[in-house]
């Protein structure tokens, strides 16, 4: 290494902020619309293997078939499959801002067997463990925008 500490190396700050318009498409679009309007979680069902696709989508990647409109309403209750508490500062690429710490995130398996990652209401990690039964708490209708954060968090309803 020939790097001399006394030498001046120039650096150019280049902040990036780009606007996008993301199209959810008919399947995820229906999911978000239903979440916003009726606080309901939907999956669609593969006609070949019968599994639920969550988030809903057009093609079952395992069977390579079009999934179609066999919609299933999911329960808002589930079980904590695993969890972790985020304590490391990180910036959110959607806003450029640092997230508020600490916060727990959990993989929640809904009663129908599909999973999602979301926040828990409980922030004391000593009180969180796998197997806890949890239920989604939705924002009030006027605050829901058709995004995953329309679910505020999952609330513990019962120990394992």
């Amino acid at each position: 290494m020939t790097e001399k500490p006394s030498e001046e190396f120039l650096v150019m700050p280049i902040p990036l902020e780009l606007p996008f318009q993301w199209a959810a498409g008919p399947y995820l679009g229906r999911f978000f619309r239903e979440l916003r309007d009726n606080a309901r979680l939907l999956a669609n069902k593969c006609p070949q293997c019968g599994r639920l696709l969550f988030p809903p989508r057009q093609v079952c990647a395992q069977c390579h078939v079009k999934v179609g409109e066999d919609w299933v309403e999911l329960s808002d209750k589930g079980v904590v499959e695993d969890f972790t508490v985020v304590v490391e500062p990180m910036s959110d690429p959607s806003t450029g801002e640092r997230r508020t710490l600490p916060y727990p995130t959990a993989t929640i398996r809904l009663e129908e067997g599909v999973s999602l990652i979301h926040y828990l209401e409980e922030t004391d990690s000593a009180k969180i463990r796998e197997g806890l039964k949890v239920q989604a708490v939705f924002k009030p209708r006027e605050k829901r925008k058709g995004e995953m954060r329309d679910i505020l968090y999952f609330r513990i309803v019962e120990g394992p």
């Binding site: 996008f20 993301w22 959810a24 995820l28 978000f32 988030p55 695993d82 972790t84 985020v86 490391e88 990180m90 910036s91 959110d92 690429p93 959607s94 450029g96 995130t105 993989t107 990652i117 979301h118 926040y119 995004e147 995953m148 954060r149």
Partner: peptide
């Protein structure tokens, strides 16, 4: 931040925690 931006923008990006979260799991 860069790594979180590879997550699906509508479904997962808001809660993505980069490689740390993945490997903690």
């Amino acid at each position: 931040a860069g790594l979180n931006s590879v997550s699906d923008p509508l479904w997962r990006r808001w809660i993505a925690t980069g490689a740390m979260g993945a490997f903690a799991r």
